[in-house]
Write a protein that binds this DNA or RNA. Structure first.
Lengths: 200, 200
DNA sequence: CGTTGGATACCGACCGGTCGGTATCATTTT
DNA sequence: AAAATGATACCGACCGGTCGGTATCCAACG
Protein backbone atom coordinates (compact mmCIF):
# COMPACT_ATOMS: atom_id res chain seq x y z
CA UNK A 1 0.00 0.00 0.00
CA UNK A 2 1.26 3.42 -0.87
CA UNK A 3 2.10 5.78 1.96
CA UNK A 4 -0.47 8.28 0.79
CA UNK A 5 -3.13 5.62 1.04
CA UNK A 6 -1.94 4.46 4.41
CA UNK A 7 -1.66 7.99 5.67
CA UNK A 8 -5.08 8.89 4.42
CA UNK A 9 -6.60 5.84 6.01
CA UNK A 10 -4.96 6.60 9.35
CA UNK A 11 -6.21 10.14 9.06
CA UNK A 12 -9.80 9.13 8.55
CA UNK A 13 -9.52 6.54 11.32
CA UNK A 14 -8.51 9.35 13.64
CA UNK A 15 -11.42 11.48 12.48
CA UNK A 16 -13.88 8.65 12.96
CA UNK A 17 -12.58 7.83 16.40
CA UNK A 18 -12.57 11.47 17.41
CA UNK A 19 -16.17 11.84 16.32
CA UNK A 20 -17.28 8.92 18.43
CA UNK A 21 -15.36 10.13 21.45
CA UNK A 22 -16.60 13.70 21.17
CA UNK A 23 -20.15 12.46 20.79
CA UNK A 24 -19.92 10.26 23.86
CA UNK A 25 -17.78 12.23 26.27
CA UNK A 26 -17.75 15.73 24.80
CA UNK A 27 -14.90 17.79 23.47
CA UNK A 28 -13.29 18.67 26.78
CA UNK A 29 -14.13 15.30 28.21
CA UNK A 30 -12.14 13.29 25.73
CA UNK A 31 -8.40 13.26 25.82
CA UNK A 32 -6.16 12.89 22.83
CA UNK A 33 -4.95 9.65 24.32
CA UNK A 34 -8.44 8.21 24.18
CA UNK A 35 -8.87 9.16 20.56
CA UNK A 36 -5.56 7.51 19.78
CA UNK A 37 -6.52 4.35 21.62
CA UNK A 38 -9.76 4.02 19.69
CA UNK A 39 -8.13 4.86 16.37
CA UNK A 40 -5.29 2.44 17.11
CA UNK A 41 -2.77 5.19 16.56
CA UNK A 42 -0.23 6.59 18.95
CA UNK A 43 0.12 10.17 19.97
CA UNK A 44 2.94 10.63 17.55
CA UNK A 45 0.74 9.54 14.70
CA UNK A 46 -2.02 11.79 15.84
CA UNK A 47 0.13 14.89 15.95
CA UNK A 48 1.70 13.93 12.68
CA UNK A 49 -1.65 14.25 10.92
CA UNK A 50 -3.22 17.07 12.93
CA UNK A 51 -1.66 20.10 14.55
CA UNK A 52 -4.00 20.03 17.52
CA UNK A 53 -7.10 18.52 19.01
CA UNK A 54 -9.07 21.55 17.94
CA UNK A 55 -8.05 21.06 14.32
CA UNK A 56 -9.65 17.62 14.35
CA UNK A 57 -12.79 19.08 15.82
CA UNK A 58 -12.92 21.83 13.24
CA UNK A 59 -12.47 19.43 10.35
CA UNK A 60 -15.25 17.26 11.72
CA UNK A 61 -17.50 20.31 11.90
CA UNK A 62 -16.69 21.43 8.37
CA UNK A 63 -17.28 17.98 6.92
CA UNK A 64 -20.62 17.74 8.62
CA UNK A 65 -21.73 21.12 7.35
CA UNK A 66 -20.48 20.44 3.84
CA UNK A 67 -22.48 17.22 3.78
CA UNK A 68 -25.63 19.03 4.81
CA UNK A 69 -25.05 21.68 2.18
CA UNK A 70 -24.71 19.27 -0.70
CA UNK A 71 -27.73 17.29 0.45
CA UNK A 72 -29.90 20.36 0.65
CA UNK A 73 -28.74 21.57 -2.73
CA UNK A 74 -29.40 18.18 -4.29
CA UNK A 75 -32.94 18.08 -2.96
CA UNK A 76 -33.64 21.57 -4.20
CA UNK A 77 -32.37 20.76 -7.64
CA UNK A 78 -34.40 17.57 -7.84
CA UNK A 79 -37.71 18.92 -6.60
CA UNK A 80 -40.49 19.73 -9.02
CA UNK A 81 -42.17 22.36 -6.89
CA UNK A 82 -41.21 24.37 -3.83
CA UNK A 83 -43.61 22.67 -1.41
CA UNK A 84 -42.48 19.27 -2.57
CA UNK A 85 -38.86 20.28 -2.07
CA UNK A 86 -39.52 21.54 1.43
CA UNK A 87 -41.32 18.35 2.30
CA UNK A 88 -38.44 16.24 1.09
CA UNK A 89 -36.04 18.33 3.12
CA UNK A 90 -38.08 17.49 6.18
CA UNK A 91 -37.47 13.88 5.26
CA UNK A 92 -33.75 14.58 5.46
CA UNK A 93 -34.05 14.87 9.20
CA UNK A 94 -34.82 11.17 9.44
CA UNK A 95 -31.83 10.43 7.25
CA UNK A 96 -29.56 12.56 9.41
CA UNK A 97 -30.67 10.70 12.49
CA UNK A 98 -30.23 7.28 10.99
CA UNK A 99 -26.90 8.06 9.38
CA UNK A 100 -25.30 9.02 12.65
CA UNK A 101 -26.41 5.93 14.51
CA UNK A 102 -26.92 7.49 17.89
CA UNK A 103 -23.62 9.32 17.75
CA UNK A 104 -25.38 12.57 17.01
CA UNK A 105 -24.70 14.48 20.20
CA UNK A 106 -21.58 15.77 18.55
CA UNK A 107 -23.88 18.40 17.12
CA UNK A 108 -24.31 19.63 20.67
CA UNK A 109 -20.57 19.82 21.00
CA UNK A 110 -20.36 21.97 17.92
CA UNK A 111 -22.85 24.37 19.41
CA UNK A 112 -21.29 24.45 22.85
CA UNK A 113 -17.80 24.99 21.49
CA UNK A 114 -19.09 27.75 19.25
CA UNK A 115 -19.92 29.64 22.41
CA UNK A 116 -16.29 29.75 23.50
CA UNK A 117 -14.07 29.37 20.48
CA UNK A 118 -14.22 32.16 17.89
CA UNK A 119 -13.00 29.92 15.09
CA UNK A 120 -15.73 27.38 15.78
CA UNK A 121 -18.19 30.20 16.17
CA UNK A 122 -17.54 31.57 12.72
CA UNK A 123 -17.76 28.13 11.18
CA UNK A 124 -21.06 27.52 12.95
CA UNK A 125 -22.85 30.82 12.57
CA UNK A 126 -22.12 31.26 8.90
CA UNK A 127 -24.09 28.19 7.76
CA UNK A 128 -27.11 29.38 9.72
CA UNK A 129 -27.13 32.60 7.76
CA UNK A 130 -26.72 30.58 4.61
CA UNK A 131 -29.62 28.32 5.47
CA UNK A 132 -31.86 31.26 6.25
CA UNK A 133 -30.99 32.76 2.88
CA UNK A 134 -31.50 29.39 1.23
CA UNK A 135 -35.02 28.99 2.55
CA UNK A 136 -35.81 32.65 2.00
CA UNK A 137 -34.99 32.19 -1.66
CA UNK A 138 -37.07 29.05 -1.80
CA UNK A 139 -40.04 30.79 -0.26
CA UNK A 140 -39.70 33.70 -2.64
CA UNK A 141 -39.59 31.25 -5.51
CA UNK A 142 -42.63 29.49 -4.14
CA UNK A 143 -44.54 32.74 -3.95
CA UNK A 144 -43.48 33.57 -7.48
CA UNK A 145 -44.55 30.21 -8.84
CA UNK A 146 -47.86 30.59 -7.02
CA UNK A 147 -47.60 27.58 -4.74
CA UNK A 148 -47.05 29.58 -1.56
CA UNK A 149 -49.07 32.31 0.04
CA UNK A 150 -47.47 35.75 -0.06
CA UNK A 151 -45.89 35.64 3.37
CA UNK A 152 -42.79 37.46 4.58
CA UNK A 153 -39.98 35.27 3.23
CA UNK A 154 -37.53 36.26 5.98
CA UNK A 155 -39.87 35.27 8.75
CA UNK A 156 -40.92 32.10 7.01
CA UNK A 157 -37.32 31.07 6.49
CA UNK A 158 -36.58 31.78 10.10
CA UNK A 159 -39.49 29.69 11.20
CA UNK A 160 -38.29 26.77 9.10
CA UNK A 161 -34.71 26.99 10.29
CA UNK A 162 -35.72 27.43 13.91
CA UNK A 163 -38.07 24.47 13.84
CA UNK A 164 -35.45 22.31 12.19
CA UNK A 165 -32.81 23.26 14.70
CA UNK A 166 -35.15 22.74 17.61
CA UNK A 167 -36.27 19.42 16.22
CA UNK A 168 -32.76 18.12 15.71
CA UNK A 169 -31.82 19.30 19.16
CA UNK A 170 -34.65 17.46 20.84
CA UNK A 171 -33.82 14.42 18.81
CA UNK A 172 -30.24 14.57 20.03
CA UNK A 173 -31.21 14.89 23.63
CA UNK A 174 -33.85 12.23 23.66
CA UNK A 175 -33.42 9.83 20.74
CA UNK A 176 -35.85 7.33 22.29
CA UNK A 177 -38.36 10.02 23.18
CA UNK A 178 -40.16 9.88 19.86
CA UNK A 179 -39.83 8.92 16.23
CA UNK A 180 -38.20 12.21 15.43
CA UNK A 181 -38.02 11.59 11.74
CA UNK A 182 -41.75 11.20 11.61
CA UNK A 183 -42.32 14.13 13.94
CA UNK A 184 -40.19 16.28 11.67
CA UNK A 185 -42.19 15.28 8.64
CA UNK A 186 -45.52 15.91 10.30
CA UNK A 187 -44.38 19.23 11.72
CA UNK A 188 -43.12 20.40 8.37
CA UNK A 189 -46.34 19.19 6.83
CA UNK A 190 -48.34 21.30 9.25
CA UNK A 191 -46.08 24.25 8.67
CA UNK A 192 -46.41 23.90 4.93
CA UNK A 193 -50.13 23.55 5.11
CA UNK A 194 -50.25 27.04 6.49
CA UNK A 195 -47.82 28.46 3.97
CA UNK A 196 -49.22 26.79 0.93
CA UNK A 197 -51.65 28.62 -1.31
CA UNK A 198 -54.93 26.80 -1.15
CA UNK A 199 -57.08 26.57 -4.20
CA UNK A 200 -60.65 27.18 -3.21
CA UNK B 1 -25.30 40.99 59.78
CA UNK B 2 -26.40 37.58 60.88
CA UNK B 3 -24.31 34.64 59.81
CA UNK B 4 -27.22 33.17 57.89
CA UNK B 5 -27.51 36.34 55.89
CA UNK B 6 -23.79 36.47 55.27
CA UNK B 7 -23.76 32.84 54.28
CA UNK B 8 -26.68 33.26 51.94
CA UNK B 9 -25.11 36.23 50.29
CA UNK B 10 -21.85 34.41 49.72
CA UNK B 11 -23.78 31.52 48.32
CA UNK B 12 -25.56 33.63 45.76
CA UNK B 13 -22.31 35.42 44.91
CA UNK B 14 -20.83 32.04 44.07
CA UNK B 15 -23.84 31.16 41.95
CA UNK B 16 -23.70 34.45 40.09
CA UNK B 17 -19.97 34.17 39.46
CA UNK B 18 -20.32 30.57 38.34
CA UNK B 19 -23.04 31.51 35.88
CA UNK B 20 -20.87 34.17 34.30
CA UNK B 21 -17.86 31.87 34.11
CA UNK B 22 -19.82 28.98 32.66
CA UNK B 23 -21.39 31.29 30.10
CA UNK B 24 -18.05 32.67 29.00
CA UNK B 25 -15.70 29.70 29.21
CA UNK B 26 -18.02 26.73 29.44
CA UNK B 27 -18.43 24.20 32.20
CA UNK B 28 -15.25 22.26 31.64
CA UNK B 29 -13.39 25.40 30.71
CA UNK B 30 -13.86 27.12 34.02
CA UNK B 31 -12.01 25.99 37.09
CA UNK B 32 -13.34 26.22 40.57
CA UNK B 33 -10.47 28.60 41.29
CA UNK B 34 -11.76 31.03 38.72
CA UNK B 35 -15.26 30.99 40.14
CA UNK B 36 -13.80 31.65 43.55
CA UNK B 37 -11.74 34.56 42.27
CA UNK B 38 -14.73 36.21 40.69
CA UNK B 39 -16.95 35.58 43.69
CA UNK B 40 -14.22 36.80 46.04
CA UNK B 41 -14.36 33.58 47.99
CA UNK B 42 -11.67 31.03 48.55
CA UNK B 43 -11.85 27.43 47.63
CA UNK B 44 -12.61 26.53 51.19
CA UNK B 45 -15.62 28.78 51.17
CA UNK B 46 -16.78 27.34 47.88
CA UNK B 47 -16.69 23.78 49.11
CA UNK B 48 -18.33 24.85 52.33
CA UNK B 49 -21.44 25.89 50.42
CA UNK B 50 -21.45 23.33 47.62
CA UNK B 51 -20.37 19.72 47.56
CA UNK B 52 -18.97 19.92 44.04
CA UNK B 53 -18.71 22.00 40.92
CA UNK B 54 -21.49 19.99 39.37
CA UNK B 55 -23.82 20.83 42.23
CA UNK B 56 -23.45 24.53 41.44
CA UNK B 57 -24.18 23.86 37.81
CA UNK B 58 -27.26 21.81 38.63
CA UNK B 59 -28.65 24.46 40.94
CA UNK B 60 -28.15 27.06 38.24
CA UNK B 61 -30.04 24.85 35.81
CA UNK B 62 -32.90 24.20 38.17
CA UNK B 63 -33.31 27.87 39.03
CA UNK B 64 -33.45 28.80 35.37
CA UNK B 65 -36.05 26.18 34.61
CA UNK B 66 -38.13 27.05 37.62
CA UNK B 67 -38.18 30.67 36.52
CA UNK B 68 -39.36 29.72 33.08
CA UNK B 69 -42.08 27.52 34.52
CA UNK B 70 -43.55 30.18 36.75
CA UNK B 71 -43.47 32.75 33.95
CA UNK B 72 -45.26 30.44 31.54
CA UNK B 73 -47.88 29.56 34.11
CA UNK B 74 -48.45 33.19 34.95
CA UNK B 75 -49.01 34.09 31.31
CA UNK B 76 -51.40 31.22 30.82
CA UNK B 77 -53.41 32.20 33.87
CA UNK B 78 -53.57 35.84 32.80
CA UNK B 79 -54.54 35.35 29.18
CA UNK B 80 -58.09 35.80 28.03
CA UNK B 81 -57.91 33.47 25.05
CA UNK B 82 -55.55 30.76 23.88
CA UNK B 83 -54.16 32.67 20.88
CA UNK B 84 -53.54 35.73 22.99
CA UNK B 85 -51.73 33.63 25.57
CA UNK B 86 -49.53 32.03 22.94
CA UNK B 87 -48.70 35.41 21.52
CA UNK B 88 -47.70 36.76 24.91
CA UNK B 89 -45.52 33.71 25.48
CA UNK B 90 -43.68 34.60 22.31
CA UNK B 91 -43.06 37.95 23.89
CA UNK B 92 -41.35 36.16 26.76
CA UNK B 93 -38.48 35.35 24.46
CA UNK B 94 -37.52 39.01 24.33
CA UNK B 95 -37.68 39.13 28.09
CA UNK B 96 -35.46 36.10 28.45
CA UNK B 97 -32.86 37.63 26.21
CA UNK B 98 -32.85 40.98 27.95
CA UNK B 99 -32.81 39.48 31.42
CA UNK B 100 -29.67 37.53 30.76
CA UNK B 101 -27.70 40.44 29.40
CA UNK B 102 -25.60 38.57 26.89
CA UNK B 103 -24.69 35.85 29.37
CA UNK B 104 -27.11 33.47 27.76
CA UNK B 105 -24.71 30.91 26.34
CA UNK B 106 -25.01 29.08 29.61
CA UNK B 107 -28.10 27.56 28.02
CA UNK B 108 -25.76 25.92 25.56
CA UNK B 109 -23.77 24.55 28.45
CA UNK B 110 -26.90 23.05 29.93
CA UNK B 111 -27.57 21.27 26.67
CA UNK B 112 -24.02 20.11 26.12
CA UNK B 113 -23.67 18.81 29.64
CA UNK B 114 -26.99 17.02 29.33
CA UNK B 115 -25.34 14.91 26.66
CA UNK B 116 -22.77 13.56 29.07
CA UNK B 117 -24.09 13.77 32.59
CA UNK B 118 -27.16 11.66 33.39
CA UNK B 119 -28.22 13.92 36.25
CA UNK B 120 -28.15 16.98 34.04
CA UNK B 121 -29.86 15.01 31.32
CA UNK B 122 -32.83 14.13 33.48
CA UNK B 123 -33.14 17.70 34.68
CA UNK B 124 -33.05 18.93 31.09
CA UNK B 125 -35.23 16.44 29.28
CA UNK B 126 -38.05 16.46 31.77
CA UNK B 127 -38.97 20.12 31.26
CA UNK B 128 -39.14 19.56 27.50
CA UNK B 129 -41.75 16.90 28.01
CA UNK B 130 -43.56 19.19 30.39
CA UNK B 131 -43.53 22.03 27.87
CA UNK B 132 -44.82 19.81 25.12
CA UNK B 133 -47.66 18.71 27.38
CA UNK B 134 -48.26 22.33 28.40
CA UNK B 135 -48.71 23.50 24.85
CA UNK B 136 -50.64 20.41 23.87
CA UNK B 137 -53.15 21.21 26.59
CA UNK B 138 -53.31 24.81 25.46
CA UNK B 139 -53.96 23.78 21.88
CA UNK B 140 -56.64 21.35 22.96
CA UNK B 141 -58.24 24.10 24.98
CA UNK B 142 -58.00 26.43 22.02
CA UNK B 143 -59.72 23.91 19.80
CA UNK B 144 -62.39 23.40 22.42
CA UNK B 145 -63.02 27.10 22.81
CA UNK B 146 -63.19 27.45 19.05
CA UNK B 147 -60.28 29.80 18.56
CA UNK B 148 -57.98 27.22 16.97
CA UNK B 149 -58.45 24.97 13.97
CA UNK B 150 -58.80 21.28 14.81
CA UNK B 151 -55.16 20.35 14.29
CA UNK B 152 -53.24 17.51 15.92
CA UNK B 153 -52.37 18.96 19.33
CA UNK B 154 -49.23 16.84 19.72
CA UNK B 155 -47.75 18.01 16.46
CA UNK B 156 -48.72 21.59 17.06
CA UNK B 157 -47.14 21.57 20.49
CA UNK B 158 -44.03 20.06 19.06
CA UNK B 159 -43.85 22.72 16.41
CA UNK B 160 -44.14 25.46 19.00
CA UNK B 161 -41.52 23.97 21.31
CA UNK B 162 -39.15 23.24 18.46
CA UNK B 163 -39.42 26.73 17.06
CA UNK B 164 -38.89 28.25 20.46
CA UNK B 165 -35.84 26.14 21.15
CA UNK B 166 -34.38 26.86 17.75
CA UNK B 167 -35.08 30.54 18.12
CA UNK B 168 -33.44 30.78 21.52
CA UNK B 169 -30.49 28.81 20.23
CA UNK B 170 -29.90 31.10 17.32
CA UNK B 171 -30.26 34.06 19.60
CA UNK B 172 -27.60 32.61 21.87
CA UNK B 173 -25.18 32.00 19.12
CA UNK B 174 -25.61 35.30 17.38
CA UNK B 175 -27.10 37.91 19.69
CA UNK B 176 -26.24 40.72 17.29
CA UNK B 177 -27.49 38.81 14.27
CA UNK B 178 -31.06 40.04 14.57
CA UNK B 179 -33.62 41.43 16.96
CA UNK B 180 -34.50 38.00 18.16
CA UNK B 181 -37.28 39.15 20.39
CA UNK B 182 -39.04 40.66 17.42
CA UNK B 183 -38.27 37.70 15.22
CA UNK B 184 -39.79 35.42 17.83
CA UNK B 185 -42.95 37.47 17.96
CA UNK B 186 -43.34 37.62 14.22
CA UNK B 187 -42.62 33.91 13.83
CA UNK B 188 -45.16 33.00 16.44
CA UNK B 189 -47.59 35.36 14.81
CA UNK B 190 -47.17 33.59 11.49
CA UNK B 191 -47.49 30.23 13.17
CA UNK B 192 -50.63 31.30 14.95
CA UNK B 193 -52.14 32.74 11.84
CA UNK B 194 -52.14 29.26 10.40
CA UNK B 195 -53.47 27.60 13.53
CA UNK B 196 -56.17 30.10 14.30
CA UNK B 197 -59.69 29.47 13.20
CA UNK B 198 -60.63 32.12 10.74
CA UNK B 199 -64.15 33.44 10.66
CA UNK B 200 -65.25 33.80 7.09
C1' DC C 1 -23.20 41.28 83.04
C1' DG C 2 -19.12 38.38 81.53
C1' DT C 3 -17.73 34.01 80.10
C1' DT C 4 -17.71 30.00 77.60
C1' DG C 5 -19.00 26.35 74.29
C1' DG C 6 -19.89 25.24 69.92
C1' DA C 7 -21.93 25.92 65.42
C1' DT C 8 -21.31 28.26 61.13
C1' DA C 9 -18.53 30.52 57.76
C1' DC C 10 -14.37 30.89 55.68
C1' DC C 11 -9.28 30.36 54.55
C1' DG C 12 -5.36 28.71 51.59
C1' DA C 13 -1.79 25.29 51.14
C1' DC C 14 -1.65 21.01 49.22
C1' DC C 15 -2.42 16.36 46.68
C1' DG C 16 -3.00 12.89 43.21
C1' DG C 17 -3.87 12.68 38.75
C1' DT C 18 -4.89 14.18 33.92
C1' DC C 19 -4.19 16.74 29.97
C1' DG C 20 -2.42 18.77 25.50
C1' DG C 21 1.59 18.98 23.40
C1' DT C 22 6.78 18.05 22.31
C1' DA C 23 11.19 15.75 21.49
C1' DT C 24 13.33 11.90 19.97
C1' DC C 25 13.96 7.74 17.81
C1' DA C 26 12.63 3.49 14.75
C1' DT C 27 10.73 1.73 10.59
C1' DT C 28 9.06 1.63 6.12
C1' DT C 29 8.58 3.40 1.39
C1' DT C 30 10.40 5.71 -2.71
C1' DA D 1 19.67 8.43 1.22
C1' DA D 2 15.68 11.17 1.96
C1' DA D 3 11.06 11.52 3.20
C1' DA D 4 7.06 9.96 5.26
C1' DT D 5 5.02 7.68 9.10
C1' DG D 6 4.33 6.50 13.63
C1' DA D 7 5.95 4.75 18.18
C1' DT D 8 7.73 6.03 23.23
C1' DA D 9 8.89 8.75 26.80
C1' DC D 10 8.25 12.77 28.95
C1' DC D 11 7.09 17.78 30.41
C1' DG D 12 4.86 21.57 32.63
C1' DA D 13 0.45 23.34 33.56
C1' DC D 14 -3.67 22.83 35.60
C1' DC D 15 -7.69 20.87 37.85
C1' DG D 16 -11.20 19.20 41.26
C1' DG D 17 -11.27 18.28 45.67
C1' DT D 18 -9.37 17.73 50.71
C1' DC D 19 -7.98 19.17 55.12
C1' DG D 20 -6.33 21.34 59.26
C1' DG D 21 -6.97 25.47 61.02
C1' DT D 22 -9.07 30.36 62.09
C1' DA D 23 -12.58 34.07 62.64
C1' DT D 24 -17.13 35.35 63.89
C1' DC D 25 -21.34 35.24 66.13
C1' DC D 26 -25.14 33.38 69.03
C1' DA D 27 -27.03 31.12 73.07
C1' DA D 28 -26.78 29.34 77.54
C1' DC D 29 -25.16 29.72 82.03
C1' DG D 30 -23.62 31.66 86.38
Amino acid sequence: MSPQQRGGETRSRILQAAMECFAQRGYDGTGVAEICRRAEVTKGGFYHHFPSKQAVFLELLNRWLAGLDTQLEAVRAGAESIPEGLLRMAGMVRQVFEAAGGQLPIFLEFLAQAGHDPAVWRATIEPYQRYRAFFRDMIEAGIAEGTLRPIDPEIGANLIVSSAVGLVLQGMLDPQGADWGQVAEESMHMLLESLERKEK
